[in-house]
Simulated assay, not measured.
Amino acid sequence: MSLRLSTVILPYRRWHEGGRSAWTRAEELGFHTAYTYDHLSWRSFRDGPWFGAIPTLTAAAAATERLRLGTLVTSPNFRHPVTLAKELISLDDISGGRITLGIGAGGTGFDATTLLKNGQDPWTPRERADRLAEFVPLLDRLLTEDSVSHAGEFYSAYEARNIPGCVQRPRLPFAIAATGPRGLRLAARHGQAWVTTGDPKLFENGTPEQSVQALRGQTEKLTEACDQLGRDVNGLGKILLTGFTPDRGRPLESLDAFVDFAGRHQELGFTEIVIHWPIPDSDFAADEKVFEQIAMEAVAQLG
């Protein structure tokens, strides 16, 4: 499978003050998919503007024609599978079948605490993994069956109706973010793609070479998970969301730097590289001219 290049557009700008133009420009530049974060707020953007993922993607669907759109990633931290399914079916319909759902267990940021009662502890990593393990199969059913009833440990549904279902059949694709064994098995069973940001333990003090080795280990474990289910791992997309490996922003410093970075990860089996749309004075600052050159020329050089 040839390498695809996609982007993440963070929802921090008002739609009519630069928000819309980023999505239309992403289509013009030829990106395969434009994703957005599905958070209530995020890290350094905590005290600034931040808009909802689903409404933003709905507007982007109306403003574009060919560009695939998606979340990277949605989590159970503040989502319920029944209401999310209804929104996704509507979004898939409005976009004409151009939606990918990136989904993962979520982290310990603002999403994990905003809905808590005062003094209540956030979910532990195990609790988040437990919820995702119930969330994904239930969402799978909600997007493929006309009526679903479910009484689980965390989620319930009683005759939840989702007619007419997704434009994409049997449902829109899932890109499941995972690094641990349970998550990788979930990706192998329910995913059309797998997402990783690398090994977070290496971000501060690791080297790019160590990161490549860690990613190789993750892809090997994904292969093992697929083998256990009798699934060909080559049928599963492998997505690397950049910006969280020891390389940080260096791959966006020049076209040659990005081609070298992407080529090394393509050799590991990655089928899609995702780069952040430049945001001045942030962790995702980058030269916009270089960014656009990468968008227009990198894939052709990688072959």
Results as ranks from 00 to 15, higher is better:
189 R>I: 01
115 L>M: 15
179 T>V: 14
126 R>T: 15
195 V>W: 04
250 R>G: 03
248 R>C: 08
139 L>P: 04
144 T>D: 02
220 E>R: 15
184 L>V: 12
180 G>R: 15
178 A>Y: 06
183 G>L: 10
231 R>C: 00
199 D>I: 08
152 G>L: 05
134 E>H: 12
168 Q>Y: 01
117 K>C: 09
195 V>G: 06
158 Y>Q: 11
186 L>P: 05
228 Q>Y: 03
170 P>T: 00
155 Y>S: 04
193 A>Y: 01
251 P>M: 01
204 E>A: 15
173 P>Q: 00
165 G>H: 10
200 P>R: 08
112 A>W: 07
235 G>V: 02
210 Q>A: 11
189 R>K: 05
221 K>A: 15
226 C>W: 11
116 L>Y: 05
190 H>T: 00
115 L>R: 12
207 T>A: 13
208 P>E: 08
226 C>Q: 03
204 E>C: 06
147 S>R: 06
205 N>E: 14
244 F>M: 09
124 T>M: 05
204 E>W: 13
207 T>P: 11
161 R>A: 11
190 H>S: 02
196 T>R: 07
218 Q>P: 11
225 A>S: 10
142 L>M: 03
186 L>D: 03
230 G>P: 04
190 H>R: 00
145 E>F: 00
229 L>N: 03
240 L>K: 08
196 T>E: 04
135 F>E: 08
202 L>K: 14
194 W>P: 00
238 K>T: 09
198 G>K: 02
177 A>D: 04
154 F>E: 07
201 K>N: 13
193 A>L: 00
164 P>L: 05
222 L>D: 08
205 N>S: 15
243 G>L: 06
123 W>P: 11
114 T>Q: 13
201 K>D: 15
166 C>Y: 01
168 Q>L: 00
251 P>Q: 01
182 R>F: 11
207 T>Y: 09
147 S>Q: 11
202 L>I: 13
251 P>W: 02
195 V>D: 05
190 H>L: 03
142 L>S: 00
136 V>R: 03
128 R>A: 06
